[in-house]
Nucleic acid binder design. Structure first.
Lengths: 245, 245
DNA sequence: TGAGGCCGCTAATCTGCGTTAAAGCGCCGG
DNA sequence: CCGGCGCTTTAACGCAGATTAGCGGCCTCA
């Protein structure tokens, strides 16, 4: 089960606050985003589909979602994970149609923010634009790191890398306790994100357990040896850009 | 040899003009970018290195470059191609250090644009910001498509897809004549971009030739059957966002 | 003129990972 | 209580693609 508790856009505050100090006025401005209608979606349902023209910026409040692309014959690649506090596609303003779908991996709740409302926030607190651009650049940086993973890292390294990344990202929004966090997705999702077959993903998971790197049960992950996991993954956190400028 | 002729930032005009109409004032404003020092770099040399703090926006004028990431043991993944008219990393403003390196694939020439100079252009013609953001979003969209390619497409499909993409992108900046264009990079570069071994990339290239999809010799590529190539690649051009909003 | 570096190409070998199949488990609805 | 579904796990098999090695051509530079 996903914890659907910690509602609101607290995760967003944490996320942006990690990058730049937010004062009360900023938080107030951002809180406006919360007033819109809250949307829900069940697991395995789409939030948006490739080819649609984007109508709203979405702010994920709880649950996990993912952008993905698929081929005519059904092969599917998950190209990222959206975690609570994340914006799904800030590119509304710019593009005519979206080039990927967005699916709910778990039950999710999110706000749909209308463009003019979004604009109002930026107008009121212009320097928040920097924070939003930062969010966008980090997303792009994560994609590059995934390219490196899928293109060059072995399955074991790849999976190790993903787990460390998720750990840091979840920690940034307050969703990791110690070295534990909810991993509310299926092995199939992990396979689709890593460009691996389901069977081989499972094999790799077993190997990680055998190696004493992680424990995974009941959709909860515990990293048993973070240092070694990072070493296996050749993890360098710079691409998450958590350091303030 | 790369044609070092068609200098200036004409390719940039073509690129942005494809997305939004540019009037004379826009072109004049953009031309300011050209006044800075022009830089050159030889093949196989770096333009920027991961970990550096970014100091200037770079506008590629001629030659090919690429963003890439590498692992401690030497494995390397090319995560994109920069073609004439492309900006290398608009993210200067935002990030403290860059999370990837940029290498020259051929002899390249580019302008280094100082942040304040860049800012001046945007101040003068605010709606150009949209165009620049568009460029950034397209770059990000290309990365997603590459993830799909490397994660799901077979080597043949992958390579076919890349060739079609390059064809469209080069055409957009006036560097394709008919179905021909310069492909001034080595097979090793193609392998590193596609997450394939050099040997297997070569095999795949042979297969494409045998299938009558392409001709490739002397660093020039001719697409012999665009429709079939697109079909093999399962190519959908939407991610390049050439359509005006 | 020769040496060495870069590049394209091919052959032989081996293995990592995909594919297929199937069994077990917990959960839900009828 | 049973049947079905979603998910995890394991086993057997075969192939796609990595690895290693080596050849020949071309260019640059001493």
């Amino acid at each position: 089960m996903t914890t659907l508790t910690a509602a609101g856009i607290e995760p967003l505050f944490r996320l942006l606050g990690r990058y730049m100090p937010l004062d009360e006025a900023d938080r107030a401005a951002l809180s406006v985003l919360e007033v819109g209608p809250i949307c829900q979606r069940d697991p395995r349902h789409d939030i948006a589909r490739e080819g649609e023209s984007p109508s709203a910026v979405r702010l994920l409040v709880s649950g996990w979602a993912c952008p993905y692309k698929d081929l005519p014959d059904g092969r599917r690649q998950i190209v990222g994970f959206f975690l609570p506090g994340d914006f799904c596609d800030l590119n509304i303003y710019i593009l005519r149609e979206i080039d990927h779908s967005i699916g709910a991996l778990t039950a999710v709740r999110y706000y749909e923010i209308q463009p003019q409302q979004f604009q109002a926030v930026i107008d009121e607190r212009p320097h928040l634009l920097r924070a939003l651009l930062w969010h966008e650049m980090v997303t792009s940086g994560i994609q590059r790191e995934w390219l490196l993973s899928i293109g060059q890292r072995s399955p074991l390294e790849r999976l190790a890398h993903l787990f460390v990344e998720l750990y840091y990202r979840l920690q940034a929004v307050g969703l990791a306790t110690g070295l534990r966090f909810d991993l509310p997705i299926t092995q199939n999702h992990l396979a689709e994100a890593n460009g691996l077959s389901l069977v081989h993903l499972n094999r790799t998971l077993q190997e990680m357990r055998r190696e004493g790197l992680i424990e995974l049960a009941d959709r909860r992950l515990r990293i048993t040896d973070l240092d070694r996991l990072k070493q296996v993954a050749m993890f360098n956190s710079n691409y998450l850009h958590f350091n303030r400028k």
